[in-house]
Structures are given as C-alpha cells and as structure tokens.
C-alpha cells in the first residue's frame, strides 16, 4: 500500500497542519511517512502546498509529479494540479471561488464546500479539518482513531481542549463531501 497525496491552496488555510496530522496518523499506524512542504518566502494569501506520502515500504522520492489524491483549495491550485492526478486517481476541490471546475474524464472528482461550511459554522479555523474529513471519507488511508491520537501529538498541550471540536469538524467533513464523478 502506498498513497501519494498533495494538498494545495492559499497560505494560512492550515494546509501544512492538515498534512502533518495526516502524516502523524500514518506514523501511529506504523507506516513510512514523508511530509514535504513547499517552502519559500511563503505568506498568508500566497500559494502553499504539501505532499504527504504514506507507505508500507521505504519511500523513494519526496518530490513527485503525479499523485493518487490531489486536494485543491483555490482556483490557481486546481489549474496547476488537475493534470497531475494519476489516471484513475482522485481530485477533491473546495468550490469556494472556483470558476472552472475539473474537466478530466479519467479521474474521480469530489467537491467539498468546506469554506462555505466553515463560514456558516462561524469558525474559519475548522476549514482544514473539514477538508481532512473529506479526504478520509474518499480515501480512508488511516482510521479516525489514529487521526484523533495524531491531533493529541501534533497540537500543543494548551490546545488539547480544541480536540473535540476538531474531531467534530473532521466527522462533519466526511458528511459534506459530494461525489461529482466516480469512475
């Protein structure tokens, strides 16, 4: 088993944290994991992405040109990464601000209205956990228990009171993701 995932969007959306929680959950389950951020003069509002690889075997390249699962959280990321989904792979996009939706016919397409939902919940910081829930629903690569344990280890002690809220957002994310095209 090996899953190669990229999550891309704006800096400040919690993308790197999302990837870290996913990677940590993989570690808890005894998998080999690699978490590779785009690093640079990043800032809130700029573009950011993180590649997460979970595997039963040794992981070769941390840098990839095609992915099993591509998660795009803004239009520039969708435009940039749609073609990098492996044939038969999966794209998940957040519809907020999207003008051109994915067009490929050879991949699974899922939509998650996580930004709208986070705004409605009055909790913008729930956004990345809603997205993580959506990812886990269509690609159950780690189990929810490991994710909760991962939250404990990834978050500073003083933030542990937020874990139930995060867990709820993850479970809610699983409910709001919608299939647009399944092959």
């Amino acid at each position: 088993m090996k899953k190669e995932i990229i999550v891309a969007g704006f800096g400040g959306q919690g993308i790197l944290s999302l990837g870290k929680i996913l990677a940590h959950a993989g570690l808890i389950e005894g998998k080999e994991v690699t978490w590779m951020p785009s690093y640079g003069p990043e800032q809130r509002g700029g573009t950011a992405n993180v590649t997460v690889i979970l595997s039963d075997d040794r992981i070769s390249s941390p840098v990839l040109n095609s992915y099993d699962v591509v998660v795009v959280l803004n239009q520039p990321s969708l435009d940039r990464f749609e073609n990098d989904v492996k044939p038969g792979g999966t794209i998940i996009y957040d519809s907020y601000g999207i003008r051109h939706t994915p067009t490929r016919k050879d991949i699974n397409i899922y939509r998650i209205d996580a930004m709208d939902e986070a705004i409605e919940m009055g909790n913008a910081r729930a956004f990345n956990m809603l997205v993580l829930g959506g990812i886990l629903k269509v690609c159950p690569i780690v189990n929810t228990e490991s994710i909760v344990n991962s939250l404990k280890e990834s978050l500073a002690e003083r933030l542990h009171k937020l874990i139930p809220e995060n867990e709820k957002a993850i479970l809610h994310g699983m409910e709001i993701i919608k299939a647009e095209q399944e092959i």
Partner: peptide, 10 residues
C-alpha cells in the same frame, strides 16, 4: 540541503 532540512519523516 533544503529538502532534507524541511521535510518531515519518521
């Protein structure tokens, strides 16, 4: 190099 410095692994 920057890749090994910045990436996370087990």
């Amino acid at each position: 190099d920057g890749i090994i410095g910045q990436m996370m692994e087990k």
